[in-house]
Nucleic acid binder design. Structure first.
Length: 246
DNA sequence: CGAATTTGACCGGCGC
DNA sequence: GCGCCGGTCAAATTCG
């Protein structure tokens, strides 16, 4: 699927806040040389690979703001009202709005805390103490609970839209499709992908904009625990690009 | 034949 | 409590 990406005609691309009713905030323009997305308004080269690993420095697992400059810029806005259970994070960068991120209030808790608390505590809502507990075995119960928590805790997300003929852009990572869903009031299905790397829980969603089917909306969730899976020559460079941007 | 995709079932959250 | 909806699972199917 990624092999067809080189044919993509990407004229314009902007990062936007997914929660604002899909309304794009135009924040810049991308051209799309195959395998190397350029963010023109930044005045620098920024690969899509780097974009796809954006959340890696946001530190969803941290109670405190990460130390990178951009994150420090972003984090204070986490305290915005959580009407939609998501905090809107936008940032001005070089005079133009570059990106917006989402982060659920639940993300303010760390995964480690959640899980360890789950494993150790007796605190519970009643159904945890039901008599199945003994019969099922503790580990089964724990796993069930961990799973439930995982559902609840949202990884940091960001999304951007792209004018593209192809749905799935080559971002350097390998993805496996695990679902597709027709969402309400849209004629185009939404596809769900997971990073194929073991222990990497990053997911992405791909859908077409209802108002303009030429536009592809890509939403990344989570952070990669590895570098892009192919293109050996690229695997060395993204880190400093990431640091510049994030 | 293993990997990847498809697709209906299932689950949990949310609003009423 | 119920129904709707988005997200995920997993068996079946297709692909390379």
């Amino acid at each position: 699927m990624t092999s067809t990406t080189s044919q993509a005609m990407l004229n314009q691309q902007g990062l936007f806040d997914q929660n604002q009713d899909q309304a794009p905030i135009q924040m810049g323009f991308f051209s799309y040389p195959p395998n190397n997305l350029t963010f023109s308004s930044l005045g620098c080269q920024q690969s899509l690979k780097a974009l796809s690993s954006l959340p890696s420095s946001l530190g969803s697992d941290d109670h405190h703001a990460p130390s990178t400059n951009l994150s420090e810029t972003l984090i204070p806005s986490l305290n915005t009202p959580l009407k939609h259970r998501e905090a809107h994070i936008t940032s001005d960068f070089g005079g133009s709005q570059l990106l917006s991120l989402q982060r659920s209030s639940a993300n303010l808790w760390s995964w480690g805390d959640q899980v360890s608390e789950c494993l150790s505590s007796k605190r519970s809502s009643g159904d945890i103490h039901d008599h199945h507990h003994v019969g099922l075995g503790v580990s089964a119960m724990k796993m069930k609970k961990i799973k439930a928590i995982r559902r609840k805790v949202r990884e940091p997300r960001f999304c951007f839209k792209t004018m593209s003929e192809v749905d799935v852009l080559d971002d350097g990572y390998k993805w496996r499709k695990y679902g597709q869903k027709v969402v309400k009031n849209t004629q185009h299905p939404r596809s769900y992908y997971r990073c194929t790397m073991d222990n990497c829980r990053v997911k992405k969603r791909v859908e077409r904009l209802a108002e303009d089917p030429r536009m592809v909306i890509t939403t990344y969730e989570g952070r990669h625990v590895h570098s892009p899976s192919h293109d050996l020559e690229d695997s060395q460079s993204p880190s400093h690009l990431n640091n510049f941007f994030w």
